[in-house]
Nucleic acid binder design. Structure first.
Lengths: 212, 212
DNA sequence: CGGCATCCACAGTGATACTG
DNA sequence: CAGTATCACTGTGGATGCCG
Protein backbone atom coordinates (compact mmCIF):
# COMPACT_ATOMS: atom_id res chain seq x y z
CA UNK A 1 0.00 0.00 0.00
CA UNK A 2 1.00 3.58 -0.45
CA UNK A 3 2.37 5.20 2.66
CA UNK A 4 0.30 7.99 4.15
CA UNK A 5 3.50 9.98 4.47
CA UNK A 6 2.44 11.46 7.78
CA UNK A 7 4.59 11.85 10.86
CA UNK A 8 1.98 10.33 13.20
CA UNK A 9 2.19 7.09 15.16
CA UNK A 10 -1.25 5.96 14.03
CA UNK A 11 -0.49 6.66 10.37
CA UNK A 12 2.79 4.74 10.67
CA UNK A 13 1.01 1.77 12.22
CA UNK A 14 -1.50 1.79 9.38
CA UNK A 15 1.33 2.01 6.85
CA UNK A 16 2.61 -1.26 8.30
CA UNK A 17 -0.59 -3.22 9.02
CA UNK A 18 -3.35 -1.28 7.27
CA UNK A 19 -3.29 -3.40 4.13
CA UNK A 20 -6.27 -5.61 3.46
CA UNK A 21 -5.85 -9.07 5.07
CA UNK A 22 -2.69 -8.21 7.01
CA UNK A 23 -4.27 -8.03 10.47
CA UNK A 24 -6.29 -11.17 9.81
CA UNK A 25 -3.06 -13.01 8.96
CA UNK A 26 -1.70 -11.79 12.29
CA UNK A 27 -4.85 -13.15 13.94
CA UNK A 28 -4.29 -16.58 12.42
CA UNK A 29 -0.66 -16.67 13.52
CA UNK A 30 -1.59 -15.44 16.99
CA UNK A 31 -4.02 -18.33 17.37
CA UNK A 32 -1.97 -21.09 15.81
CA UNK A 33 1.61 -20.08 16.66
CA UNK A 34 3.18 -21.90 13.68
CA UNK A 35 1.28 -22.24 10.42
CA UNK A 36 1.80 -23.78 7.04
CA UNK A 37 0.74 -21.81 4.00
CA UNK A 38 -2.27 -24.07 3.61
CA UNK A 39 -3.33 -23.63 7.24
CA UNK A 40 -3.33 -19.89 6.69
CA UNK A 41 -5.33 -20.22 3.50
CA UNK A 42 -7.93 -22.40 5.24
CA UNK A 43 -8.15 -20.02 8.18
CA UNK A 44 -8.68 -17.03 5.90
CA UNK A 45 -11.69 -17.88 3.76
CA UNK A 46 -11.94 -15.52 0.82
CA UNK A 47 -8.26 -14.62 0.46
CA UNK A 48 -6.72 -15.05 -2.98
CA UNK A 49 -3.60 -17.18 -2.97
CA UNK A 50 -1.49 -14.55 -4.70
CA UNK A 51 -2.48 -12.00 -2.07
CA UNK A 52 -1.59 -14.36 0.76
CA UNK A 53 1.84 -14.94 -0.77
CA UNK A 54 2.34 -11.21 -1.34
CA UNK A 55 1.28 -10.25 2.19
CA UNK A 56 3.54 -12.88 3.75
CA UNK A 57 6.48 -11.47 1.83
CA UNK A 58 5.67 -7.91 2.88
CA UNK A 59 5.20 -8.97 6.49
CA UNK A 60 8.52 -10.81 6.44
CA UNK A 61 10.20 -7.68 5.03
CA UNK A 62 8.71 -5.49 7.72
CA UNK A 63 9.69 -7.87 10.51
CA UNK A 64 6.27 -9.14 11.54
CA UNK A 65 6.67 -12.72 10.39
CA UNK A 66 9.46 -15.26 10.05
CA UNK A 67 9.60 -18.18 7.69
CA UNK A 68 11.36 -21.35 8.75
CA UNK A 69 12.00 -24.63 6.96
CA UNK A 70 10.61 -27.38 9.18
CA UNK A 71 12.68 -30.58 9.48
CA UNK A 72 11.67 -33.83 7.66
CA UNK A 73 8.69 -35.10 9.69
CA UNK A 74 6.84 -31.95 8.63
CA UNK A 75 9.02 -30.99 5.67
CA UNK A 76 7.40 -27.71 4.84
CA UNK A 77 7.80 -24.03 5.56
CA UNK A 78 6.29 -22.74 8.76
CA UNK A 79 5.26 -19.14 9.34
CA UNK A 80 5.47 -17.56 12.78
CA UNK A 81 4.96 -14.14 14.31
CA UNK A 82 8.06 -12.32 15.48
CA UNK A 83 8.12 -10.65 18.91
CA UNK A 84 7.25 -7.40 17.15
CA UNK A 85 4.28 -9.10 15.55
CA UNK A 86 3.06 -10.43 18.89
CA UNK A 87 3.14 -6.87 20.23
CA UNK A 88 0.06 -6.25 18.10
CA UNK A 89 -1.99 -8.20 20.63
CA UNK A 90 -3.30 -5.14 22.54
CA UNK A 91 -4.35 -3.49 19.29
CA UNK A 92 -6.10 -6.63 18.09
CA UNK A 93 -7.81 -7.01 21.46
CA UNK A 94 -9.06 -3.42 21.35
CA UNK A 95 -10.31 -3.76 17.78
CA UNK A 96 -11.95 -7.09 18.61
CA UNK A 97 -13.72 -5.59 21.59
CA UNK A 98 -14.97 -2.76 19.41
CA UNK A 99 -16.07 -5.11 16.64
CA UNK A 100 -17.77 -7.70 18.86
CA UNK A 101 -21.20 -5.96 18.83
CA UNK A 102 -21.15 -6.09 15.02
CA UNK A 103 -21.15 -9.88 14.92
CA UNK A 104 -24.37 -11.53 13.89
CA UNK A 105 -25.40 -15.12 13.90
CA UNK A 106 -23.36 -16.85 11.18
CA UNK A 107 -26.44 -18.93 10.33
CA UNK A 108 -28.39 -15.89 9.21
CA UNK A 109 -25.58 -13.63 7.95
CA UNK A 110 -23.97 -16.36 5.87
CA UNK A 111 -20.58 -15.40 7.30
CA UNK A 112 -17.82 -17.96 7.29
CA UNK A 113 -16.86 -19.46 10.61
CA UNK A 114 -13.86 -21.52 11.74
CA UNK A 115 -13.91 -23.34 15.03
CA UNK A 116 -10.36 -22.36 15.91
CA UNK A 117 -11.23 -18.64 15.78
CA UNK A 118 -12.78 -18.97 19.21
CA UNK A 119 -9.28 -19.36 20.68
CA UNK A 120 -8.65 -15.64 20.26
CA UNK A 121 -11.56 -14.32 22.35
CA UNK A 122 -10.91 -17.12 24.85
CA UNK A 123 -7.36 -15.90 25.28
CA UNK A 124 -8.25 -12.21 25.29
CA UNK A 125 -11.42 -12.11 27.37
CA UNK A 126 -11.40 -15.06 29.75
CA UNK A 127 -9.89 -14.15 33.13
CA UNK A 128 -8.73 -16.34 35.98
CA UNK A 129 -10.51 -14.91 39.02
CA UNK A 130 -8.29 -16.70 41.54
CA UNK A 131 -4.77 -16.50 40.12
CA UNK A 132 -3.20 -17.59 43.42
CA UNK A 133 -5.00 -20.93 43.57
CA UNK A 134 -3.32 -24.01 42.11
CA UNK A 135 -3.14 -23.90 38.30
CA UNK A 136 -5.97 -25.57 36.45
CA UNK A 137 -6.21 -27.09 33.00
CA UNK A 138 -9.42 -27.27 31.00
CA UNK A 139 -10.02 -29.44 27.94
CA UNK A 140 -12.16 -27.68 25.36
CA UNK A 141 -13.69 -29.10 22.26
CA UNK A 142 -15.25 -26.23 20.37
CA UNK A 143 -17.01 -27.67 17.36
CA UNK A 144 -14.32 -29.84 15.76
CA UNK A 145 -11.41 -27.95 17.36
CA UNK A 146 -9.58 -29.28 20.41
CA UNK A 147 -8.06 -26.65 22.69
CA UNK A 148 -6.37 -26.60 26.06
CA UNK A 149 -6.98 -23.68 28.37
CA UNK A 150 -4.72 -23.26 31.39
CA UNK A 151 -4.40 -20.62 34.06
CA UNK A 152 -1.18 -18.61 33.72
CA UNK A 153 -0.89 -17.51 37.37
CA UNK A 154 -1.27 -13.79 36.65
CA UNK A 155 -5.02 -13.66 36.07
CA UNK A 156 -4.77 -14.44 32.39
CA UNK A 157 -5.14 -17.80 30.68
CA UNK A 158 -3.14 -19.58 28.01
CA UNK A 159 -4.97 -21.23 25.15
CA UNK A 160 -3.13 -23.85 23.08
CA UNK A 161 -4.31 -25.98 20.21
CA UNK A 162 -4.50 -29.72 20.94
CA UNK A 163 -5.87 -31.99 23.63
CA UNK A 164 -4.87 -31.82 27.30
CA UNK A 165 -3.45 -34.37 29.70
CA UNK A 166 -5.50 -34.95 32.86
CA UNK A 167 -7.68 -31.83 32.69
CA UNK A 168 -9.66 -30.71 35.74
CA UNK A 169 -12.74 -30.50 33.58
CA UNK A 170 -13.80 -30.72 29.98
CA UNK A 171 -16.25 -28.72 27.89
CA UNK A 172 -17.67 -29.66 24.55
CA UNK A 173 -20.18 -27.82 22.36
CA UNK A 174 -20.77 -24.94 19.95
CA UNK A 175 -17.86 -22.46 20.05
CA UNK A 176 -19.73 -19.30 20.93
CA UNK A 177 -21.74 -20.95 23.68
CA UNK A 178 -18.51 -22.19 25.26
CA UNK A 179 -17.18 -18.63 25.10
CA UNK A 180 -20.35 -17.25 26.67
CA UNK A 181 -20.12 -19.84 29.44
CA UNK A 182 -16.48 -19.13 30.26
CA UNK A 183 -16.96 -15.35 30.26
CA UNK A 184 -19.95 -15.74 32.56
CA UNK A 185 -22.53 -14.46 30.10
CA UNK A 186 -24.68 -17.59 30.40
CA UNK A 187 -25.17 -20.11 33.21
CA UNK A 188 -24.10 -23.73 32.96
CA UNK A 189 -27.77 -24.73 32.86
CA UNK A 190 -28.62 -22.61 29.82
CA UNK A 191 -25.33 -23.50 28.14
CA UNK A 192 -26.32 -27.16 28.52
CA UNK A 193 -29.67 -26.32 26.96
CA UNK A 194 -27.74 -25.00 23.96
CA UNK A 195 -25.77 -28.19 23.50
CA UNK A 196 -22.79 -27.80 25.82
CA UNK A 197 -21.53 -30.90 27.63
CA UNK A 198 -19.53 -30.23 30.78
CA UNK A 199 -17.72 -32.86 32.81
CA UNK A 200 -15.75 -32.30 36.02
CA UNK A 201 -16.03 -30.13 39.12
CA UNK A 202 -18.64 -27.40 38.59
CA UNK A 203 -16.70 -25.02 40.80
CA UNK A 204 -13.80 -25.07 38.31
CA UNK A 205 -16.12 -23.06 36.12
CA UNK A 206 -16.69 -20.39 38.78
CA UNK A 207 -13.00 -19.64 38.63
CA UNK A 208 -13.36 -18.08 35.17
CA UNK A 209 -15.09 -14.93 33.99
CA UNK A 210 -14.99 -12.07 31.54
CA UNK A 211 -13.07 -8.78 31.82
CA UNK A 212 -13.51 -6.37 34.81
CA UNK B 1 -14.66 -1.99 0.87
CA UNK B 2 -15.73 -5.56 0.42
CA UNK B 3 -16.70 -7.32 3.61
CA UNK B 4 -14.48 -10.16 4.73
CA UNK B 5 -17.63 -12.15 5.38
CA UNK B 6 -16.15 -13.76 8.48
CA UNK B 7 -17.91 -14.26 11.76
CA UNK B 8 -15.03 -12.83 13.82
CA UNK B 9 -15.01 -9.66 15.90
CA UNK B 10 -11.71 -8.49 14.40
CA UNK B 11 -12.93 -9.05 10.84
CA UNK B 12 -16.14 -7.16 11.62
CA UNK B 13 -14.18 -4.24 13.04
CA UNK B 14 -12.04 -4.15 9.91
CA UNK B 15 -15.16 -4.27 7.73
CA UNK B 16 -16.23 -1.06 9.46
CA UNK B 17 -12.98 0.88 9.85
CA UNK B 18 -10.45 -1.00 7.69
CA UNK B 19 -10.88 1.24 4.68
CA UNK B 20 -8.02 3.46 3.73
CA UNK B 21 -8.22 6.88 5.51
CA UNK B 22 -11.12 5.93 7.79
CA UNK B 23 -9.13 5.62 11.02
CA UNK B 24 -7.19 8.79 10.23
CA UNK B 25 -10.50 10.66 9.86
CA UNK B 26 -11.44 9.32 13.28
CA UNK B 27 -8.10 10.62 14.58
CA UNK B 28 -8.84 14.12 13.28
CA UNK B 29 -12.31 14.15 14.81
CA UNK B 30 -10.96 12.80 18.09
CA UNK B 31 -8.47 15.66 18.28
CA UNK B 32 -10.71 18.48 17.09
CA UNK B 33 -14.17 17.43 18.35
CA UNK B 34 -16.08 19.36 15.64
CA UNK B 35 -14.59 19.81 12.19
CA UNK B 36 -15.51 21.48 8.97
CA UNK B 37 -14.85 19.63 5.75
CA UNK B 38 -11.90 21.90 5.07
CA UNK B 39 -10.40 21.33 8.53
CA UNK B 40 -10.49 17.61 7.83
CA UNK B 41 -8.91 18.07 4.44
CA UNK B 42 -6.10 20.18 5.91
CA UNK B 43 -5.52 17.69 8.70
CA UNK B 44 -5.29 14.78 6.28
CA UNK B 45 -2.57 15.73 3.79
CA UNK B 46 -2.70 13.45 0.77
CA UNK B 47 -6.39 12.57 0.83
CA UNK B 48 -8.33 13.14 -2.39
CA UNK B 49 -11.40 15.30 -1.88
CA UNK B 50 -13.75 12.75 -3.44
CA UNK B 51 -12.47 10.08 -1.06
CA UNK B 52 -12.98 12.32 1.96
CA UNK B 53 -16.57 12.96 0.90
CA UNK B 54 -17.15 9.26 0.24
CA UNK B 55 -15.67 8.17 3.56
CA UNK B 56 -17.70 10.72 5.51
CA UNK B 57 -20.87 9.37 3.91
CA UNK B 58 -19.93 5.79 4.72
CA UNK B 59 -19.03 6.71 8.28
CA UNK B 60 -22.33 8.52 8.71
CA UNK B 61 -24.16 5.44 7.40
CA UNK B 62 -22.35 3.16 9.79
CA UNK B 63 -22.98 5.42 12.77
CA UNK B 64 -19.45 6.67 13.41
CA UNK B 65 -19.99 10.29 12.48
CA UNK B 66 -22.80 12.83 12.57
CA UNK B 67 -23.21 15.85 10.38
CA UNK B 68 -24.81 18.98 11.78
CA UNK B 69 -25.64 22.32 10.18
CA UNK B 70 -23.97 24.98 12.28
CA UNK B 71 -25.97 28.19 12.93
CA UNK B 72 -25.22 31.48 11.06
CA UNK B 73 -22.01 32.74 12.73
CA UNK B 74 -20.30 29.61 11.40
CA UNK B 75 -22.83 28.71 8.68
CA UNK B 76 -21.27 25.46 7.59
CA UNK B 77 -21.65 21.76 8.24
CA UNK B 78 -19.77 20.37 11.19
CA UNK B 79 -18.69 16.76 11.50
CA UNK B 80 -18.49 15.04 14.87
CA UNK B 81 -17.80 11.57 16.19
CA UNK B 82 -20.74 9.71 17.67
CA UNK B 83 -20.38 7.91 21.00
CA UNK B 84 -19.75 4.73 19.04
CA UNK B 85 -16.98 6.50 17.15
CA UNK B 86 -15.35 7.70 20.36
CA UNK B 87 -15.29 4.10 21.56
CA UNK B 88 -12.49 3.56 19.06
CA UNK B 89 -10.14 5.42 21.37
CA UNK B 90 -8.61 2.30 23.00
CA UNK B 91 -7.98 0.78 19.58
CA UNK B 92 -6.37 3.97 18.29
CA UNK B 93 -4.28 4.22 21.44
CA UNK B 94 -3.05 0.63 21.06
CA UNK B 95 -2.24 1.11 17.37
CA UNK B 96 -0.51 4.40 18.12
CA UNK B 97 1.61 2.81 20.81
CA UNK B 98 2.58 0.07 18.39
CA UNK B 99 3.35 2.52 15.59
CA UNK B 100 5.30 5.04 17.67
CA UNK B 101 8.70 3.30 17.16
CA UNK B 102 8.17 3.57 13.40
CA UNK B 103 8.16 7.35 13.44
CA UNK B 104 11.24 9.05 12.09
CA UNK B 105 12.28 12.65 12.08
CA UNK B 106 9.94 14.48 9.69
CA UNK B 107 12.91 16.58 8.56
CA UNK B 108 14.68 13.56 7.10
CA UNK B 109 11.72 11.37 6.12
CA UNK B 110 9.87 14.16 4.35
CA UNK B 111 6.68 13.15 6.15
CA UNK B 112 3.94 15.70 6.58
CA UNK B 113 3.42 17.09 10.03
CA UNK B 114 0.59 19.09 11.61
CA UNK B 115 1.07 20.79 14.94
CA UNK B 116 -2.36 19.76 16.23
CA UNK B 117 -1.51 16.07 15.84
CA UNK B 118 0.46 16.27 19.06
CA UNK B 119 -2.84 16.59 20.97
CA UNK B 120 -3.53 12.89 20.48
CA UNK B 121 -0.40 11.50 22.14
CA UNK B 122 -0.70 14.20 24.82
CA UNK B 123 -4.18 12.95 25.65
CA UNK B 124 -3.31 9.27 25.39
CA UNK B 125 0.08 9.10 27.04
CA UNK B 126 0.40 11.95 29.54
CA UNK B 127 -0.67 10.91 33.04
CA UNK B 128 -1.44 12.98 36.11
CA UNK B 129 0.70 11.43 38.86
CA UNK B 130 -1.17 13.11 41.72
CA UNK B 131 -4.85 12.97 40.74
CA UNK B 132 -5.98 13.93 44.24
CA UNK B 133 -4.15 17.26 44.29
CA UNK B 134 -5.99 20.40 43.18
CA UNK B 135 -6.65 20.46 39.42
CA UNK B 136 -4.08 22.21 37.29
CA UNK B 137 -4.27 23.85 33.90
CA UNK B 138 -1.33 24.09 31.53
CA UNK B 139 -1.11 26.38 28.49
CA UNK B 140 0.67 24.73 25.60
CA UNK B 141 1.78 26.28 22.39
CA UNK B 142 3.09 23.47 20.20
CA UNK B 143 4.46 25.05 17.05
CA UNK B 144 1.60 27.25 15.89
CA UNK B 145 -1.10 25.31 17.77
CA UNK B 146 -2.52 26.53 21.08
CA UNK B 147 -3.74 23.82 23.43
CA UNK B 148 -4.98 23.62 26.98
CA UNK B 149 -4.11 20.62 29.08
CA UNK B 150 -5.96 20.08 32.34
CA UNK B 151 -5.97 17.33 34.93
CA UNK B 152 -9.21 15.36 34.92
CA UNK B 153 -9.03 14.11 38.54
CA UNK B 154 -8.79 10.43 37.63
CA UNK B 155 -5.15 10.32 36.58
CA UNK B 156 -5.85 11.24 32.99
CA UNK B 157 -5.68 14.66 31.37
CA UNK B 158 -8.00 16.54 29.04
CA UNK B 159 -6.53 18.30 26.04
CA UNK B 160 -8.60 20.99 24.34
CA UNK B 161 -7.79 23.25 21.41
CA UNK B 162 -7.46 26.96 22.28
CA UNK B 163 -5.76 29.11 24.87
CA UNK B 164 -6.29 28.79 28.61
CA UNK B 165 -7.38 31.26 31.29
CA UNK B 166 -4.95 31.71 34.19
CA UNK B 167 -2.83 28.60 33.60
CA UNK B 168 -0.49 27.36 36.33
CA UNK B 169 2.31 27.23 33.79
CA UNK B 170 2.88 27.60 30.09
CA UNK B 171 5.04 25.68 27.65
CA UNK B 172 6.03 26.73 24.19
CA UNK B 173 8.23 24.99 21.63
CA UNK B 174 8.50 22.22 19.05
CA UNK B 175 5.62 19.73 19.42
CA UNK B 176 7.56 16.53 19.91
CA UNK B 177 9.91 18.08 22.46
CA UNK B 178 6.92 19.25 24.47
CA UNK B 179 5.55 15.71 24.35
CA UNK B 180 8.89 14.26 25.44
CA UNK B 181 9.04 16.74 28.33
CA UNK B 182 5.51 15.98 29.58
CA UNK B 183 5.98 12.22 29.37
CA UNK B 184 9.24 12.51 31.29
CA UNK B 185 11.48 11.33 28.48
CA UNK B 186 13.67 14.45 28.64
CA UNK B 187 14.52 16.85 31.45
CA UNK B 188 13.45 20.48 31.48
CA UNK B 189 17.08 21.48 30.97
CA UNK B 190 17.52 19.48 27.77
CA UNK B 191 14.05 20.44 26.54
CA UNK B 192 15.12 24.07 26.95
CA UNK B 193 18.24 23.31 24.94
CA UNK B 194 15.92 22.11 22.17
CA UNK B 195 13.94 25.31 22.06
CA UNK B 196 11.27 24.83 24.74
CA UNK B 197 10.26 27.85 26.80
CA UNK B 198 8.68 27.06 30.15
CA UNK B 199 7.16 29.60 32.50
CA UNK B 200 5.61 28.91 35.90
CA UNK B 201 6.27 26.62 38.85
CA UNK B 202 8.77 23.92 37.90
CA UNK B 203 7.12 21.45 40.25
CA UNK B 204 3.92 21.60 38.14
CA UNK B 205 5.95 19.67 35.60
CA UNK B 206 6.82 16.91 38.05
CA UNK B 207 3.14 16.16 38.34
CA UNK B 208 3.04 14.74 34.80
CA UNK B 209 4.59 11.65 33.27
CA UNK B 210 4.18 8.88 30.74
CA UNK B 211 2.26 5.59 31.11
CA UNK B 212 2.93 3.04 33.94
C1' DC C 1 -14.79 29.99 0.09
C1' DG C 2 -16.91 25.33 1.50
C1' DG C 3 -18.56 20.96 -0.12
C1' DC C 4 -18.72 18.21 -3.00
C1' DA C 5 -19.25 15.50 -8.22
C1' DT C 6 -16.85 13.98 -12.43
C1' DC C 7 -13.22 12.18 -15.08
C1' DC C 8 -9.06 9.66 -15.85
C1' DA C 9 -4.63 6.93 -15.20
C1' DC C 10 -3.11 3.53 -12.42
C1' DA C 11 -2.35 0.56 -8.34
C1' DG C 12 -4.56 -2.99 -5.55
C1' DT C 13 -7.76 -7.00 -5.48
C1' DG C 14 -10.02 -11.47 -6.51
C1' DA C 15 -10.89 -15.60 -9.31
C1' DT C 16 -8.86 -19.00 -11.73
C1' DA C 17 -5.28 -21.63 -13.96
C1' DC C 18 -0.89 -23.45 -13.81
C1' DT C 19 3.81 -25.28 -11.88
C1' DG C 20 7.97 -27.49 -9.32
C1' DC D 1 2.19 -28.06 -0.65
C1' DA D 2 3.53 -23.56 -1.72
C1' DG D 3 3.35 -20.77 -4.38
C1' DT D 4 3.56 -17.89 -9.57
C1' DA D 5 1.01 -16.06 -13.74
C1' DT D 6 -2.76 -14.01 -15.90
C1' DC D 7 -6.53 -11.06 -16.34
C1' DA D 8 -10.97 -8.63 -15.32
C1' DC D 9 -12.40 -5.61 -12.03
C1' DT D 10 -12.52 -2.15 -8.25
C1' DG D 11 -10.45 1.39 -5.36
C1' DT D 12 -7.31 5.36 -5.17
C1' DG D 13 -5.11 9.78 -6.14
C1' DG D 14 -4.84 13.88 -8.85
C1' DA D 15 -7.00 17.39 -11.46
C1' DT D 16 -10.69 20.00 -12.46
C1' DG D 17 -15.48 21.73 -12.59
C1' DC D 18 -19.70 23.13 -10.43
C1' DC D 19 -22.90 25.38 -7.35
C1' DG D 20 -24.72 28.07 -3.41
Amino acid sequence: MRSYGQCCALAKALDAIGDRWTLLIVRELMIREACRYTDLKNGLPGIATNLLAERLNEMEQSGLVTREAAPPPVATTLFRLTARGRELEPAIAALGRWGAPLMGNPQTTGDEFRDHWVALPLRLYVRDRRPKDAPVRLAIRAGEESLTLETAGDGSVRVQPGTSERPAASIQGPPHTILALLTGKVSLASARAKGVRFEGETKTLERFGGPE
